[in-house]
Structure formats: structure tokens, C-alpha cells
Design a protein around this nucleic acid. Sequence first.
RNA 1: GCGCCUGUAGCUCAGCGGAUAGAGCAACGGACUUCUAAUCCGUUGGUCGCAGGUUCGAUUCCUGCCAGGCGCGCCA
Length: 569
Amino acid sequence: MGSNAVGLIKEALQHLVEEALQRAARSGDLVCAEFPPVEIEVPKNKAHGDFATAVALSMARSEKKAPRLIAEKIIAHALAILSAPSTTTPLRVERIELAGPGFINFFLHPAWLQDQVRVIRQADTAFGTSDIGGGERVQVEFVSANPTGPLNIVNARAAAVGDTLARLLAATGFAVEREFYVNDAGNQVLKLGRSLEARLRQAAGEDCPFPADGYPGAYLQDVARALWAAGVAGELLALPEEERIEALAQVATERIVAEQRALLERYGVHFDQWYHERRLRAEKAPEAVLALLQERGTTYQAEGAIWFASTRFGDDKDRVLVKSDGSYTYLLPDIAYHYSKLQRGFTKLLDLLGPDHHGYIARLQAAVTALGYPPDTLEVLIVQMVRLLRGGEQVRMSKRAGEFVTMAELLDEVGTDAARFFFLQRACESHLDFDLDLAKVQGNENPVFYVQYAHARIASILRQAKELGYNLSDDVPTASLQHPAELALLRRMADLPDEVASAALAREPHRLTYYAQDLAALFHAFYTECRVLGEEAELSQARLALTDAARIVLRNTLTLLGVTAPERM
RNA sequence: GCGCCUGUAGCUCAGCGGAUAGAGCAACGGACUUCUAAUCCGUUGGUCGCAGGUUCGAUUCCUGCCAGGCGCGCCA
């Protein structure tokens, strides 16, 4: 049995049922005009077996028979297959039950679970990984905050979601790169330059008005002070107007981006690529992609502007690419940017965008299609808003006044582990309430502490086992693991490869936090029910090996979440 | 007006078309001479927003409505 036991068993049971269906058809027990897809599921209720299928229910209509009757036939043939001496299957089916309206429930010998201890300890850091991605090159672009100010709370959420999504994809065998797109060209950056100029002059004591459309946040005053301190401010201010604004804008964005990068690193998020719009413009990428779109006959002129006929590719409105005054809309460089991703060889592009960009999805996908790539090449995930709660009250964030809780402030207050875990507790398209008080609680009502505490408890047992002279070999007999708490824990541990794969493919990293809490709860229950050290030798050995395997599964899960797995708490 | 997200226990939320809808918190009641009680066990708690439709079967898919949040540009 390989390291994805659950997947393999599902597959084996599926083959078993399919074979049974074929035999039933041959023997005339069933008509089987068409074979329905056999889906093997894991019942929520333990009494319903280890695995189950509802295939008999879905056949009721075409068979014109009661589902229970159909299930009976399938079970009879499946049992015949299993008892045939020639059968070669990894399955050790203890019994098959007919239940409810026609469910077929499979009960397996616990050996497959007991065996997981060895499998997990052998795979170690690789447990949970798979190669279903086949090395496909995937790019995840996320955060991509404007270089005009500090990162905010939603950026922090996007960073957690994007990074864990990337970790999940890497764990499932995709070749993943993380990319941050820096919008360091265009109007907003010039506004930033003018804002910085005002702050520089103000810092020097000049009575300089602040631009009405500028960026009022205090962070620019910090930048201004730093530039005076570094002795470069005077030089910059002496430049001629256009050059000066341009240079100040560049200095400001570079500083801000550097701070963003440092903060994200502190948060455990490392981007492989920081792609600058400035570079895109310098390489004339917008012009090139415009020419390409024109060449492909997907543009037209109207009202003095150049339009992209995006409605031909599923958008609900055509979009302007070049305004009547000859300047570009933001869409054109954005298309150029996505074209650059495609030219760099990525075959799957994942963009995490804010809710204010949802209107962008259709036009970007239209552009990718117009450029000749499959429509599903670009997938966009919308990361919804975050409300901060303190003392049960919403913390108001006003961007206009330049007062908003920044990502840095959040990390200072609750730390990386709690922040990442909390952000990953909700589906990214759901609005999220972040309870600052709860995130700081050092107790079981705080889920991140609950999970980490399980890991610390495990580490404590393993430490003491070592002190007591327990020697844990690589292959410990585990047939003595029979207690319901042991088997329930093992069952959930065995799920990790499936959980990782399905979370990656569904782009739903939040599933992992639920898995982590489940796992922790099952370990705590095991800890309460079963003593590890000081039992009869073989049992203690088996439980110690189980504890070690639980450590691996918990640690691997926390690693995917980007949350630390503490040895002590 | 149009579009997007959300509506499930007192609160915050899970729930690949399947069986008696789950978890955490909160509330209440229990469990420490034993590996961390930062834990565990139990109890209470539901018209799955409303109404139709598809289906053998719908919290899940479709349509309409209601409610809350967000957005709409030849801005970025």
C-alpha cells in the first residue's frame, strides 16, 4: 500500500464494483444498459463503514428495480470476486453491508490503517505529496499591491491564501512560481512622486502645500526623513520638474516595495519574481501585444479610440485599449503582462484579485483566449474583504484619511502564525471577520494554539521517551493499535494526501485549517484515552510510533499553512 | 439600473447531488496521585433566508424574490 492509501483503496474498490457490475450484467442479474460512474465515498458516519458507494441508487431508474435489490446483486458478485482464489487485490475487506435506501458499505480490516504508521514515518516530509501535477508550470500571482503605500489587511489575507495555495500546488507536483506584480508606472506613481516632494520640502521647513490627490499617509514622511538623513534629498529636489517627479516616484516606490518585500518575508511568503510594470513599459510590451491583437483581427477603431472586441470571447462589453487621446487604458499593459506570463512558459495562470477587480476577470480571460490560449488557462480567485473586530466591535479603516490598520501592525499584534491561520480559516471568496482578541488568546478557544499545542504535546512525549531510553526503530509492529481513538486518529492521518490534492485542485487552501483542527482534536482524544509510555513493551512501541507519525502529519500540515510547529509551549 | 460575494445552532463558520446537516466558541454538567487540564467526555441548541424547478434523492444544481456587503469609468 503506497503513501496515498485512501486514494488507492478508493481505486481498488471502484474496480471491484465495476467488475461486479460487469459480472452481474453477464449473468443476467442486472441489465446494465449503461454503466454509471462508480464513485467511492467516505461516509460521514462511522457506522456506515470505511468506504461506501451509492451506485445502486443511481441505477434504479435504468434498471427499473429497487435500489436495494440492485445493491444485493452487486454485493453478491463482489463477494464472489473477493473469495475467488485467483483474486489479487490490496484490499482486505472484512464485510460488505447493504444499508439504508441502497448504499453499499465496505468495512476493511484495520491492517491498512495500522500500516500507515510505517508508511508515514518512511515518507516523512514527503507524506501528503503526490505527483498529479506532472510538473506542469503554474504561476500564482498574488498581493500585487500598489507601490504607493504599506500593505494592508486584505493584502495579508491574499498573501496567506496565495502562498498556501502555491505550497499546495508544489506538494501535488506542479512547478509553481509566486509572482508579485508591481504597478510602478502611470499616474498613481507620479502622484506619489509629487506627494513625496511635498513631504521633503515640509521636512526641510518649507511651507509647501500637500497635493489634493496625493498620498497622505505618514509613511511618506518617514521616507522623506530617511532621504534627508541619507543626504540625497537636496540633489533630488534640484532636478528639473519632470525629471524630479519621475526620480522621486522611483525612489518612493523602491523604498515602499522593499518594505513590502521585507514584511512578506517575515510573514513566510517568498516571491520568485517581482515583475515591474516599468519594465513592461520599457520593453514596449503593450505596443507589441496591441500589434498582436490587431494582427489577429480582434480590435477595431471607434470614437477615436482603439477597442478590444472582447465580447467575441465571452465578455459582456467591448473594452477600450487606447483612449482617444492616444494614452493606454490600464487594460492594455495588463494584457501585455499576462501575455508575458504565457510567453514565459506557464500553462496555468492563477490570479488572486480583490473584489473590486471582479469585472476584470472576463476581459482578461477574453484577452488570453484572443491571444490563442485555452480559455481555462487563466483562473481568477477573488479574495474578499476583511473586517477587524476588537472587543466585538468593528475596527474602522478609513483609507481616505490615510488611517488604516496595516499588515505590519497586525503582525506586531497577533504574530505570523495566528494571522496566517485565521486568514486561512475561510474560503477566500467569503467575507472574513478577524477577531483580534481571539487571535491573541493563549488557550484552546484559539484554534491556532489548539493545533500547535497538539504538536507540542507530541514533542514532549517523544522527548520523554528518549530520556526513558525508548528506541524507536523504522519498522515497529503496529497490530496492537486497536483502540477506537487510535484507529480514528490513524484514519484521519491517512487522509492527508487526499486532502492536499483536493485542496490544491479545488484552489481551496482553507480546507487545511479544518483538517489541522480535526487532526489535533483526534490526537488530544487519543492522548486522553491511551497512555503511550510505560505500557506493555509492544503496545508502548506501537503507540510511540503512532505518536511520531502524528507528529509528521501535523507538522506537514502546519508547514503547508506556513504556521510553525512548536516543540514546546 | 447592472454585476460580484454572502445568507446553515445564540456567535463565527465547514459541509465533491446522498444516509440522523457538522465543528469551534458561548451556556450547562462532569474528568487531573499517571506522558503538558493550554486537554478530554457529555448535555442543550436548526422552518439550512423565502418560493418554485431539475432529480430516485437538493443545504448542495437552476430560476425568481427578500436581506446584508462590495463594485460599476476612455481611473489605476
